[in-house]
Computed example of a mutant assay.
Amino acid sequence: MTGTRTIEARTDGGARPRGPGGGGLVGAIGAEWTKLWSVRTPYACLLAGVALTGVFTFYYGSLARINDKPVQPLGNAPVSSVVLGQFAVVVLAMATVTSEYATGSARTSLLWVPVRHRVLVAKSVVAGAVSFIAGALFAVLGMAVAWTPFRGHASFVPAEAASQALATALYCALVAVLTVGASFALRTAAATLPALFLLLYGLPVTCQALGGPLLLSVDDFLPQTAGGHFMHGGTGAPYGAPAGILIVLAWTAAAHWAGRYVLGRRDA
């Protein structure tokens, strides 16, 4: 039989047509992976993350030595650099969504993957996976850079360092997934980036600067502060490390739900 479809033998002696394989969520993830690395944005974001981590951790280690601070875990340097370094993964994850809305290619993506929430999940998986690896690399790089300027003001315990590196990687991955959800909800870079900057940096800084029991309590439940408590192992926090990552997960789930709601309700 000729044509575009093949014939598959059946055990009852008949035959049935068999369409092409692939597709589904796995196919959507593969497509998003290919699209991500076909543009320059992720490379620029990762290079910016490396630069920010290197500069900030060197500065952090130098300050600890100059101010003669007590010995602290070496992993504290890259954890502190996440305050700025997280925006490298924010921009990377945001671009996977807002660039398509800007160019109109979001319509094409939704035609290829008509089950809309799969597009959201696929972008989240790809952005989260890349950001997890990037976060781990940033942590390792930060510890390597900070070791020299610390000059005896940091301790290196392999298990502790590995734990902080994995915690940093997980936090970066969740921030990326949160960003994808927020990007689908807001759709433009002009709206998404300021909103995430306010949530991840502006509000924590404001709450800590103004102080007071109420604002400091609010700050403890913001994603960046909760993530910091998690990456520091819960040291000095009002709750343990598991509670910190659960708070970040809750923010991520809320952003994901908002993105899915808007994606399902509005046209591309």
Rank of each mutant, 00 (worst) to 15 (best):
T2I: 12
G3I: 14
T6Q: 12
T11W: 14
D12V: 10
G14P: 01
A15S: 14
P17Q: 11
R18E: 05
G24N: 03
G27L: 12
G27N: 00
A28I: 03
E32A: 09
E32P: 00
T34K: 04
K35V: 14
K35T: 13
W37S: 03
R40K: 05
P42N: 02
C45I: 13
C45T: 15
L52V: 08
T53S: 05
V55K: 04
T57W: 02
Y59E: 07
S62I: 01
S62N: 12
L63I: 15
I66S: 12
N67Y: 15
D68R: 11
V71M: 10
V71C: 06
L74W: 07
L74Q: 11
L74G: 03
N76W: 02
N76L: 13
A77N: 06
V79W: 15
S81P: 07
V83D: 08
G85D: 14
A88V: 13
V89Y: 05
V91S: 04
A93R: 04
M94W: 12
T96A: 13
T96G: 11
S99I: 05
S99C: 06
G104I: 15
R116N: 00
K123H: 04
V125Y: 07
V125P: 05
V125L: 09
A129G: 07
I133F: 12
G135P: 09
G135L: 11
V140Q: 02
A146H: 08
A146I: 06
A146L: 09
F150W: 00
H153F: 14
F156S: 06
V157A: 12
A161E: 10
A162P: 09
S163H: 10
T168P: 03
T168R: 06
A169Y: 03
L170W: 05
L174G: 00
A176I: 15
T179P: 09
R187T: 02
A189D: 04
P194T: 15
A195C: 14
A195D: 07
F197T: 11
F197V: 14
L198N: 06
L198Q: 00
L199N: 02
V205W: 11
V205K: 00
V205S: 08
A209R: 02
L210Q: 10
G212W: 07
S217W: 14
S217V: 10
S217H: 08
D219A: 13
F221Y: 15
F221H: 12
L222N: 02
T225H: 04
T225I: 11
G228Q: 09
F230P: 02
F230Q: 01
M231Q: 09
G236K: 00
P242A: 10
A243G: 06
A243D: 09
G244S: 09
I245A: 02
I247A: 06
V248I: 04
V248A: 05
W251C: 03
T252L: 10
A255S: 09
H256N: 00
H256I: 14
A258S: 09
Y261N: 02
L263W: 01
G264F: 02
G264C: 01
R265E: 01
R266E: 04
D267S: 07
D267N: 13
A268H: 05
